[in-house]
Structures are given as structure tokens and as C-alpha cells.
Design a protein around this nucleic acid. Structure first.
Lengths: 226, 226
DNA sequence: TGCCTTTATTGACGGCGGTCAATGAGCTGT
DNA sequence: ACAGCTCATTGACCGCCGTCAATAAAGGCA
């Protein structure tokens, strides 16, 4: 487990502990919407198991994925901060167990203990930092740098990094993952193939890879022209 | 002045008022760095005149622009929230007048009045919403939709919208602006030309346009395949 | 286990957009 | 006002990546 991962774990636990007395357990079925874009209700979610996808619907009906949240993450605090509607949809990708706080519940909680908001702000700030990384990745030129950089970001967020053989799993289907990089699934696949040919990557199962040469992968990620 | 603009003005004024007793005037010269990526000091800036560019340096030495802040904006609060370093550089594009609070100053201020943090959170949340829009734009396919959507976003942030002839000015050089869209200046220029040919846009001065048909512009923005 | 559906990979092809180069327009300073 | 420079625009060309189609592999379910 990386230092980063330890911190994330601890962050989550601390946050969870801080809010524990206001939390109510709740389950979400696979496919269920936690909220829709435009909703103003606000629901703070502590996800314990399963995955939740945050996405937007374009006017054309196509969906673009903003985040995939896995176990031990906190999310859903946007409307609490600026009283504006949710900027995206949230849908359970699996059957999920979670603990939640309603809008009014959180208001009360924060009223009782102002420090709570500090904790939430940290999470919000982290979210913004991640968004910067995403923007940087999307602005860069060429498919290989994007893919390499995205894979490296996955390593950070996954707990596997025993140096020798780092295993990474795409949190979603290759199709959606490619799209979140602004690529077609075909281009993504081709890029992976190129990395495999260079002995930087190894295919394990579908959407599951092993990094053979992380230094080379970093080089590819940084080889973007911009 | 749009409703949106009114709100932004008011938001800024409220925020400014809230912090007024902690603020210290400060000037920045054109080209001066307000902070560097990795700095942990933290400096909350209320910009009164001039523009400030937030950018990252890639390993290749190229810069990518994340934000351009103009008059009447608050920024620089990231390190206050999560105690992590600034994720980007901040450089004055003009001679700027501002009022600032140091890290310690803000700590004291928030300690005295916890409501201050609520105000900052709103700004942080707004920043994240903007980031979502940017991500959505970058993920979409085709140059014209990107350009159209970016122009529309500029209208929102600028005070001009007297319905008949909406004037938009690029906050930075066409070159940099194109790059922030993941495009080359040439592609950007060609896209503008296409919009002009369709009588959707009119060139005024360099980097200054008039929207002749905002409905058509919206259509183009939404014509992205994804 | 076997069948069927879904999803990833590979190939061929065409178009969009990036690159390079030339021209033109717009600022700056003297 | 003129000169000189910077920066936007336009053109020609080509390579990359998206599209379409076919194949292969992997899950899902009875």
C-alpha cells in the first residue's frame, strides 16, 4: 500500500469518524441513480462497497464520465457548498452499501461543529486538484501520452504498487474509459498494444494490465508535445 | 449586465466585505509570479485590476493555461484547504492591483469568524464546476464545437450581453487560448473563419468578436458527436 | 459445459486537424 | 507617420486518429 493510499484511507476514516453520528446506512442497487443533474437536494455519500459513476449527459444524449468513485470515498458535497444544483448524474455501477447524510442533516451537523466543513473542504480541494490533472491530460497531444498518463494516475488511486509488478485495473469498461480520455475505444486499444509491443505493459485479463517498466511509462506520459 | 454577472459581482463584493478587515493592499508587476507550483505558502488574492494567469509547466517546458482571472475575482485559496502545495503557477499578465491575505492571516480570520470559510467554499465549488465544463469541452470531438462552447463560456464571464450584439474578447492571445482548448492556433483560427462564413460571428479587432447569431452558435457547440 | 451476448482487438480506409511556410494585419516605439 | 515586430490568418501537405467492418476473446446464463 502506497503512502498516498494510506493517506487516503486515513482521510476517509477520519472524515467518516467525524460524521459518524449523523450518518444513516443506505443501499443502492446496480443502475440506481443517486441523483440527477440539476437536483438541488444534496446527499453526502460515504461509499463503503461498490462503485458510483459521475457523468453528464450531452444534448446529443451521449454521456461523458467525470469520475468513478470506489469503496472508501466521500462525495456528493457540491450543493452543500454553493447551494447550486448537482452538475452531473450519479449512478451506482454495482450494488452499493453506503452511509449518507441529507442536506438538512449536514446543515445541522455543521452548525453543531464548524470543523466539519473544514474536513469537507479538504475533499473538495482534492477533487479540484484531480480535475486539473484531468484537464492537463486532455489538453496534451497524442494518444500514447494520454493513455500512459491515465494509467499512471490509476496506479496512484489503486492500492497496488509493490514496485516489482504493478497491476492496474480499469475501473470501468475500456469503452467508457477511452471516452473519458477523449479517445475512441479503438485508439485506446491500439495505444495499449503499442505499449505492450514496447514491453512496457502486459495484458492480464480484460481491462487489467501489469506495468513492466514504469520508468518508460512515465517517459511516454511526458512525451506529449505540449 | 447579465444576471449571472450581477451575481458574480455581488459575490465578489460580499466576499470582499467579509474579509475587508484582514486585507492588505499589494501590487504585482506585469510578468511577476504571485506563486510557483509547489509553493506551500498560500496567498489569498482579491484582484481589483489586471489579469492573472494560472498555468502549469509540463516536463517539456511548455506551459498550459488553467485559468485567466480578471478584475473582481478571488483566488489562491487551494493550499488553505488541504495544506498541499499550489498545483500551478500564477503570473500577472498586467500590472495588477490587489488585496491579499497571508496564510497565517487567513487562519486567524477564519478562527475569529468561521463563516468566512463558508464563503471561500462557495468560490472553490464554483471553480470545480468550471473545471467540469472545461473537461466536458475537452472530451468532445471536433474543433468547431469546442470553439463555439468556449466562446459561449466567455460570454457568461464577460459583462457584455445586451442581446443585440454580444461582444467577446479573448482574455489572452489567440495562441494560448487555442492551446487551452487542446487546439493549435491555426485550427482555432480556421474554426473562427468557418463561423464567420456562416454569419454566426464577426471579426472586430484581433481577438475580439461579435456574436451575430447566438442560437446558431449554441447549436454548433452542441453538435459534438460525443 | 455449451451457446449466446457483449466487449476488446485488429485491419483498411478516409478525413480532420496538425505542421510548416508564406502572407497579411495589427500593435509599438521613435 | 513610418518602420519593425509580433501575431493572426491562409494555403498546401501529410500523418494520425476516428470510422466502419470483421474477427476474436471474454462473460453470462441456462
Amino acid at each position: 500500500m502506497t503512502q498516498y493510499e494510506k493517506n487516503r484511507e486515513q482521510d476517509y476514516k477520519e472524515t467518516h469518524k467525524t460524521f459518524s453520528k449523523f450518518l444513516k446506512p443506505r443501499k443502492f442497487r446496480k443502475g440506481q441513480l443517486l441523483w440527477s443533474e440539476g437536483d438541488t437536494d444534496g446527499l453526502l455519500v460515504f461509499l463503503k462497497t461498490g462503485r458510483v459513476k459521475i457523468y453528464r449527459l450531452l444534448p446529443t444524449g451521449k454521456a461523458i464520465t467525470l469520475y468513478i468513485f470506489g469503496a472508501n470515498t466521500v462525495f456528493g458535497f457540491m450543493p452543500f457548498f454553493d447551494d447550486a444544483p448537482y452538475p452531473a448524474y450519479a449512478q451506482a455501477l454495482d450494488n452499493c452499501e453506503a452511509e449518507v447524510i441529507s442536506r438538512t442533516g449536514l446543515r445541522q451537523a455543521v452548525h453543531q461543529d464548524p470543523d466539519l466543513s473544514i474536513v469537507l473542504m479538504k475533499h473538495l480541494a482534492k477533487r479540484l486538484r484531480d480535475a486539473f490533472d484531468t484537464i492537463e491530460r486532455l489538453q496534451s497531444k497524442g494518444t500514447d501520452p494520454k493513455v500512459a498518463s491515465a494509467l499512471l494516475a490509476l496506479v496512484e488511486n489503486s492500492s497496488n504498487s509493490s514496485h516489482a509488478h504493478i497491476i492496474i485495473s480499469l475501473p470501468i469498461s475500456s469503452h467508457e474509459y477511452a471516452q473519458s480520455l477523449g479517445l475512441t475505444p479503438e485508439s485506446f486499444s491500439r495505444s495499449i498494444t503499442r505499449l505492450v509491443d514496447k514491453s512496457i505493459l502486459k495484458r492480464l485479463q480484460r481491462n487489467r494490465f501489469q506495468i513492466l517498466n514504469s520508468e518508460a511509462l512515465k517517459e511516454v506520459a511526458e512525451s506529449a508535445i505540449w
